[in-house]
Each structure stands twice: as structure tokens, then as C-alpha cells.
Computed example of a mutant assay.
Amino acid sequence: MTQSKPMSKGGQSRFAAAQPAKTDGIGERIRARRQVLSLTQGELSEKSGLSTGALSQIERGLVSPTVRTLYTIADVLGMSPAQLIDPEGFASASRANPYVLRASDQPEVLNAGGVMKRRASPELIEKIKSFAVRIAPGGSSGDEFYTHSGEELGYVVSGSFTLQIEDATYLLQAGDGFALPSTIRHRFFNSGESEAFVLWVNKPD
């Protein structure tokens, strides 16, 4: 993997402009889970690093959470982003064949900011999770770095996208692979003109 020059102003513009897309019921599920854990909005704000105002708007369905925000909140609440987005699909897929997850049964675990992510492997092995990730042109994880527990790696099947890890910026193309501890700051975006398709693997703690 080679390091590229810092992204252009055009890349920054697309990266910051990408907006999340799917919010149905997410805010209600966040509030319900927070209440189950006996957390106030203030406590969730402190643990997640998000403002209470932003959390309030998300819980009321007034704004759409970004990829980074979904991961951050889910991590604090001890949930998978999939459980916040589509709990029924998550549960249904988990009850399917423990060894094989057919393409037609792969649940959507994320659809925000031009990033569509489906679980690509069964839940039989909890320590390793693989995902089929599609990043549309202009799509991104959000305009801020994020972190979460565990480790991750990936392989670019087609297209290209930019991965930022701390102060390093990498332009990854088809055939390239990557790996990093999820606890260090990272973000990604697609400033190209075609969709990037990435096989992404996470190893939670």
C-alpha cells in the first residue's frame, strides 16, 4: 500500500458534503436502548463525544446520523450498527444457516452518507465479521475521524477509495489491501467517479 499526496480541495468538498441516507426508527431505537441501560442523554453524550443537542435531534429523527456517529453510538450502547438500522433483518439473518449466508439473506447493516454495507458472513464466529461495502462516488464515513474497539482489514474488489489513518492518506485501488487497529483515528471517502466495492473484515474485542 503506497501513501498518496494529501487529498485535493475537491476531494475534501465531496467528503464533507456527503449526507446520510437512512434513518427510519434509528433514533427511537437509540433512545430505547439508552433508557434500558439507564443512561441519560448527558451521559451518552459524555461517553460518545457527541453533543446533547445532536443526540436529541437524532433520537427525535430530525437529523440523520453519519457512519461515524452510528458506529460511535452503537459502540457505547453495546450494539451492532445493524441492530440500530434493521433489527428484524439482523435477527432473521442470525437464525439462518449458521455456516452459510446467502446473498439474498445478507442484512443491510448500514446505509448512510453514500456508504452501503451488508454483512457477508454468518454470526457463527463472533470474533470475526466480514462485510460487503459499497462506497458511492462522493460517499464517505463522515467529515470527522472515528474510532471503535477491535481490529479491521479489507480488500478492494473494484473501484477506488481514499483511506485516512491518523495523519496518513492512502488512495486504495482494486487489488489493494489494508489493515489497522480500529482504536486509532481513521475515516474514508470516495472522491472518484465510480463506486468502490470493498470486502471489509472486523475483529471486535
Rank of each mutant, 00 (worst) to 15 (best):
T2V: 13
T2P: 02
Q3K: 15
S4T: 04
P6Q: 09
P6L: 02
R14G: 10
A17I: 09
A17D: 11
Q19G: 06
A21P: 11
K22F: 09
G25S: 15
G25A: 13
G27Q: 03
G27Y: 01
E28S: 13
I30F: 05
I30G: 00
R31Q: 04
L39V: 08
Q41M: 13
Q41A: 08
E43I: 05
L44A: 07
E46Q: 15
G49M: 00
S51Y: 06
A54I: 09
A54M: 11
L55S: 00
Q57V: 01
E59K: 01
G61L: 03
G61H: 04
V63C: 09
P65Q: 07
T69F: 04
T72N: 00
A74Q: 10
V76R: 05
L77C: 08
M79V: 11
M79L: 07
L84A: 10
P87D: 01
P87G: 05
E88V: 13
G89R: 05
S94W: 12
S94D: 07
L101D: 12
R102N: 08
R102G: 08
Q106E: 08
G114Q: 08
G114E: 10
V115Y: 01
V115Q: 02
P122K: 12
L124W: 10
K129C: 05
S130F: 00
A132M: 07
A136I: 07
G138C: 15
G139C: 02
G139E: 07
G142Y: 10
G142M: 09
Y146D: 07
Y146T: 06
Y146E: 03
T147C: 12
T147Q: 15
T147F: 15
L153H: 13
Y155W: 14
S158Y: 03
S160C: 10
S160A: 07
T162M: 08
T162D: 07
A168W: 02
T169F: 14
A174K: 03
D176A: 11
F178P: 07
P181H: 14
S182N: 12
T183I: 04
T183F: 14
T183S: 11
F188T: 00
F189Y: 06
N190M: 06
E193L: 03
S194I: 00
S194Q: 02
S194G: 02
A196I: 05
A196F: 02
F197M: 10
V198W: 01
L199G: 00
P204W: 06
P204Q: 13
P204V: 04
